[in-house]
Each structure stands twice: as structure tokens, then as C-alpha cells.
């Protein structure tokens, strides 16, 4: 079982959702780690949840990326530790340089809160083993700055080296089927891996769809995959 910790920055607001999803699949509550912590020894998986760290003032994730705990996350990543960043967590990972590219304002300049469909680009990573390759699943998104961008060479490299984790995909029927890449992300990229596939950043929130009561369990395989690792 992966020893798991969730980072808490001031302004983070999806740490409870994440903890519930982790506990449901792992059978054990994750540790909550305050942003001033400098030692992550003993953890296998560090999760950076969604929210508005430091108000997302200046740029989303910019100030969190400079906080003490992110130095420790870099050390953790350098020794091969696993990192999952969702939404603001993804933004923080790019700002910290642990993943390439950046998340810009949504193409329509409005906050987007809706379900989106994601396609699984590969299922041979620790995060996606319980999905099928090419499977399309549903996940809520809720962000103002999810428009993934990188220079064309980086995008080519991400695609060429199999580092795209999820893409926005058309859904079946209903109003959600059209215009599926609503935030305008380059090549419809919703999530990416580090070259060793041990760091995953994505904008949508699989942790908010792990209970049939909330509309489905499409996000649960991600946590089941990690729980089985």
C-alpha cells in the first residue's frame, strides 16, 4: 500500500474530496501535510489537490510552487516518488517545473464547471491500470485556467513519448457532446505524465466522481489503480 499524503496550501479547497476518494479505495485515510513541511520522507505518493492556493493571485499555482513543501516534493520526485496533481495541483506542478507547459485562462474567459469526457491514452501506468486503453470516462471539471499550452516542440515530444495521460473527448449524446475541449487546451490535452510516468497532472476531478450517489464512479478506477500498486 502506497503511503500517501495530501498537501494543504492556504486556499486549497478540494482536499476533503480527495481524502474521501483515497480512503474509499485505499481503506486508509491519507496524511494531511501543511505547506510549511520540509520533509516528505516515508511517503510514496504525494497528492496536490484542487483549489485556489494563495488565492491564485499573480498566477494560478505560482506562489504555492515556491513554498517550502514544494522543495520537498522535488526531492521526493527526484528519488522516484509518485506525485498526483489535480486542477490547482496540476497548475502548481507546471509552475514548479515538475511538468512542462502552463495552464492559461480558459478560451472563453469564463470559469467552467461541468462534466467532461476524458479518453485514457495509456493504461500501463500506476495511475491508470484499472482503466482500459482508449476508454472514455466522465469527470467533473471546475476551473478558470485549464487551457493547457506548451510550445509545439514540447507538445510533439509529449505525444511522441507517450506522456499524454488524458485528452478531452466527445461524449455520448446530450448537450455535452459538442464543443468538448471547452477550455481550449492544445491538442485537447487534459493531463500529462513526467517522462518516468510517476508524476501525473490533470485538470478534471476524478475524485468528485467515486460514488454512485454523486452521479457515478467513473473516477474510482484511478484511485483503485493506485490502491493496487
Amino acid at each position: 500500500m502506497l503511503q500517501t499524503g495530501i498537501l494543504i496550501f492556504p486556499g486549497i479547497n478540494r482536499e476533503r474530496d480527495m481524502a474521501i476518494a483515497v480512503e474509499q479505495s485505499f481503506g486508509k485515510a491519507p496524511k494531511l501535510i501543511w505547506h510549511k513541511e520540509t520533509d516528505l520522507t516515508g511517503l510514496d505518493l504525494v497528492i496536490i489537490p484542487g483549489g485556489f492556493s494563495f488565492g491564485d493571485y499573480l498566477r494560478c499555482g505560482a506562489m504555492a510552487a515556491q513554498s517550502p513543501v514544494m522543495q520537498a516534493v522535488k526531492t521526493h520526485a527526484a528519488r522516484g516518488g509518485y506525485v498526483l496533481g489535480v486542477c490547482n495541483g496540476f497548475q502548481i506542478l507546471t509552475e514548479a517545473g515538475l511538468l512542462p507547459g502552463a495552464l492559461l485562462r480558459n478560451a472563453g474567459l469564463r470559469f467552467l464547471s461541468m462534466d467532461t469526457m476524458l479518453s485514457v491514452e495509456r493504461n500501463d501506468t500506476i495511475f491508470t491500470a484499472h482503466y482500459q486503453k482508449g476508454q472514455v470516462f466522465r469527470a467533473p471539471l471546475a476551473h478558470g485556467d485549464g487551457n493547457y499550452t506548451a510550445d509545439p516542440a514540447t507538445l510533439d515530444r509529449l505525444e511522441g513519448e507517450g506522456l499524454v495521460a488524458f485528452r478531452y473527448a466527445p461524449g455520448a449524446g446530450g448537450a455535452e457532446s459538442q464543443n468538448y475541449n471547452r477550455n481550449g487546451s492544445a491538442r485537447a490535452i487534459a493531463g500529462i505524465y513526467s517522462p518516468n510516468h510517476r508524476i501525473l497532472g490533470l485538470m478534471p476531478h476524478p475524485e468528485d466522481l467515486v460514488d454512485p450517489l454523486m452521479g457515478g464512479t467513473d473516477g474510482k478506477p484511478l484511485f483503485d489503480s493506485l490502491a493496487a500498486a
Binding site: 499573480l58 505560482a62 515556491q66 507546471t94 509552475e95 502552463a102 492559461l104 499550452t149 506548451a150
Partner: peptide
Amino acid sequence: KMLLANMVI
């Protein structure tokens, strides 16, 4: 370079 601007973009 460190904080105020994101040199990627």
C-alpha cells in the same frame, strides 16, 4: 524570474 513571471509563457 522566480515568481512574478512564468518564463514558460
